[in-house]
């Protein structure tokens, strides 16, 4: 049963890592703007768009 000590220690350590990661997220300001990134990700990359067009033509 001594294994439990180790397991609990590990689980707390892991949880602490997540907490630290959250601190880092807050500090780096990733949560300051929760709206714009959601829109930004929908924009097509210019270069990528052209490549897709070319590959589409290849298929047809």
């Amino acid at each position: 049963m001594n294994m439990i000590y180790l397991l609990i220690g590990c689980s707390i350590l892991l949880a602490l890592l997540f907490l630290l990661a959250f601190f880092w997220v807050i500090k780096s300001g990733q949560n300051d703007d929760t709206f714009t990134p959601a829109v930004r990700i929908l924009f097509d990359d210019e270069v990528a768009e052209k490549e897709i067009e070319i590959s589409d033509e290849d298929h047809t």
């Binding site: 300051d32 709206f35 714009t36 930004r40 924009f43």
Partner: peptide, 23 residues
């Protein structure tokens, strides 16, 4: 958002532009 984050295409001196939409 799209236009203002592509300012570097208009002027090469602009390195980066980021929008905070709500503000």
């Amino acid at each position: 958002i799209w236009l203002l984050e592509h300012l570097h295409l208009l002027q090469s001196g602009i390195l980066q532009s980021r929008i905070d939409f709500l503000k």
